[in-house]
């Protein structure tokens, strides 16, 4: 019997994805970047640019590896990253960095 589950996982093109080991390395990197974020807040001059960079690095790791966007259809990336870019620009324009 064909169920939605079996239909959904029909044989398609050969899928690429990160390995379990890569997932663990990514998790370690995410934890390390979070620790660095907590240290960076004590650097007044570089605080905002570094925090923004670390934040995007963490988001990129989750989206590209955990959400498999690195290996998935390019259309997924475009459909997701355009609103992200629009939102990021809007938010950055409202941060203290834009109003020193």
């Amino acid at each position: 019997m064909t169920t939605p589950e079996t239909i959904a996982h029909a044989p398609e093109h050969e899928e690429k994805h990160a390995s379990e080991g890569t997932f663990f390395v990514v998790f370690g990197a995410l934890a390390a970047l979070t620790v660095i974020e907590l240290l960076v807040i004590y650097l007044p001059g570089l605080r905002y640019p570094l925090l923004i960079g670390l934040m995007f690095a963490k988001a990129w790791l989750v989206i590209d590896y955990f959400m498999n966007l690195r290996y998935d259809n390019k259309l997924f990336r475009i459909s997701f990253l355009i609103p992200v870019a629009a939102g990021v620009i809007m938010t950055i324009l409202l941060t203290p960095l834009s109003h020193p």
Binding site: A8, H9, A10, E12, D72, N73, L75, F76, S79, F80, I82, P83, V84, A86, G87, V88, M90, T91
Partner: peptide, 20 residues
């Protein structure tokens, strides 16, 4: 499967516009 994933990515894009 790809259609379902695409629908989810579009939904997540709308969520970005909600949270921003």
């Amino acid at each position: 499967k790809n259609n379902s994933k695409f629908a989810m990515w579009l939904f997540l894009a709308s969520e970005v516009m909600f949270f921003t």
